[in-house]
Simulated scan of single mutants.
Amino acid sequence: MRFLVITFCSLVLAACAGLPGQGPAAITISSEDIEGDAVRNSYALVTVDRESISTLHAYRPKPFSAHFRKVSAGGRATRLGIGDRLMVTIWEAAPDGLFSTTDGKQVTVPAVVDEAGYIFIPYAGRVRAADRSVENLRAAIEERLKGKAIEPQVLVMVEGNESSGVVVVGDVTKPGQYTMSVRGMRLLEAIARAGGSREATYETVVTLKRGGASGEARLVDLIEYPENNIWLTPGDNVLVTHKPRTFSAFGAVKETKLVPFKTESVSLAEGLAQVGGLKDFFADAAGIFLFRFEDRELVRKLKGEVADKFHTARVPVVYKLNLRQAEAFFLARSFGMRDKDIIYVANHPTAEFGKFLQIIGPLLSNVNTANALVD
């Protein structure tokens, strides 16, 4: 009987490699594998320590405004266009001038920029208004009236800047088209005029489409980083979308699942806690990995010349944390999670033996019972 037990155990031990697992052990993912053949592996391995945490905190990604040509408050937003409604007031120096009336020495002429970009002013004729600033149009009208009116002076006021409209749609209270004032309009102002986002700022993504250029940023980043709150130009389209952030957890954790962010910021320590922590008897505390894509410039700060092996703007990075070191728990509190991060906890090398004992435990118990009966 004992010979049969020994034979059975030998066969099962030989088949241990075929036992099911939750993923590769920590020793199968090493910095030597990655850095030795970065082209084949196509990712970079970064150890989570004080230096890497400091680099992550200090790094500022490329601002949202870099996707678009900068427009100042006195830029294109002040240009007139087709459909704009104007009020042109003309004064003369004498009561018997062309525009004098019984009520005074001035007259106000309403005008709308026509489909050809012109307005009509009596005695000045058709004056081009499209693509001109208000001051430029005022000076042009005044020049046209010289020699006809008596020392004319002109004032141009914009009643309706219809051509300088931007469209705001999506998860806002009042989607629609909004016109700019002469001073222009910033991105946050357009969203505010549309009633603001219906969801939390950190769960809201703002996409701006300008001609062939497009860029997106979370609404909270427009507030925290003022350079992202750019000036809009006529014809811009703004899409406000509710996009909750999530991260995934796999491997030797108590719950393998997709986890939504419940607060504005979540640390790696909190992320592990939300999936129940490490799985007893299986997890390798030295094999905590986090997968994400980083800017190549950040990878250069973290890994130096290793970044030169990648030719894409976004580089896949694997961060490794060793929770067998007490300091790692403090580092996990400082390591911020991001949208679509993946946490993987590797199996401990002895986990397979633990599975084996669970399988043969009942069999050994039965054998011991049979031996007792025989004796």
Rank of each mutant, 00 (worst) to 15 (best):
V172C: 04
A140I: 04
R2T: 10
R245G: 01
E297R: 13
M87L: 13
N136G: 14
R76G: 09
E297G: 03
D339F: 00
G23A: 07
A249P: 01
G354W: 09
A15W: 09
L268Y: 07
R245W: 01
E216L: 08
P63T: 06
R198S: 04
K257L: 10
I27P: 00
E294W: 01
I29T: 03
L145M: 09
S72C: 00
R69E: 14
V12N: 07
N366D: 12
H311G: 05
K174W: 06
E327K: 11
V367I: 12
A25M: 10
N366Q: 11
D131L: 10
G160V: 09
K355L: 12
D114I: 13
F329C: 04
K254N: 15
A213W: 03
L268M: 13
E216A: 14
A269D: 13
N366I: 14
T78M: 10
T47Y: 10
D171M: 06
V253H: 01
G165M: 05
K174N: 11
V182Y: 08
K279T: 12
G147S: 10
E255W: 11
F329P: 01
V253W: 02
L323N: 02
V172M: 06
V71C: 05
A200W: 07
F120V: 11
R85E: 15
K257S: 11
K257T: 15
G184E: 00
E159R: 13
G215F: 02
E216W: 08
